[in-house]
Amino acid sequence: MILELPLLVLLVMTAAGAILVKDLVSGVFILGSYSFVLALVWALVGAVDVAFVEAVVGAGLATVFFLLTLSRTEEKDTELRRLPVPKVALIGLPLLALLMLYGAGDLPVFNDPRSPASTHLSPLYLENSVEQTRTPNVVTAILMDYRALDTLVETLVIFTAGIACALLLRNGAR
C-alpha cells in the first residue's frame, strides 16, 4: 500500500529529530511521537498486537519512565556533550548498512505464501493447535503452550526489571 511510504518518512524524521534536538526533555517528547508512528506502521502491516504493545510500552510507559529519570537527576548530569564523529564511523557505518541491505535481499517478500515460514511452521500451528492445546486463539496457543518455557523465562526477566525499577524509584532515592 502506498500509505507506508509517508509513514516511513515520518518515522525517519522523528528518529532524526529525537537525536538532533537540543535538550533531553524535547528528545523524550519526540521519541513519544516516534513510537506513535511506529505503532501505526505495525497496525498497517497487520501486526495488531505488536502495535498495541508499541503504543503501551513505547509511547506510554517509556515516556513516563524517561521523565521520571529526568526529574530525579540534576541538570548538570543530563547536559548534552556532542563529540565529533570519528572518521572510522563515517566510513564504516554506511558500509555496514550496505552489507545488511545486501543480506536483506535474500529474505522472502512480505506476505509471500511460499516463504519457508508459511509453508512449514504456520500451517502446522494453524491445523493442530485446537486439538493439541484446546485453545481457540492460535497466538495464545503458541505463546502459552508451544513456547511456554520461553514465555516463563521472559516473565522472569520482566519481573526482575520491575523490581529493579521499583527499588530505584523509591521515594527519596536519588
Partner: peptide, 14 residues
C-alpha cells in the same frame, strides 16, 4: 478500536 482506546488512555497518562 481496542488499540485506539488503549492509545487514548495512555495518551492521557503520558
Amino acid at each position: 478500536v481496542d488499540i485506539s482506546t488503549g492509545y487514548a488512555i495512555l495518551n492521557l497518562v503520558g
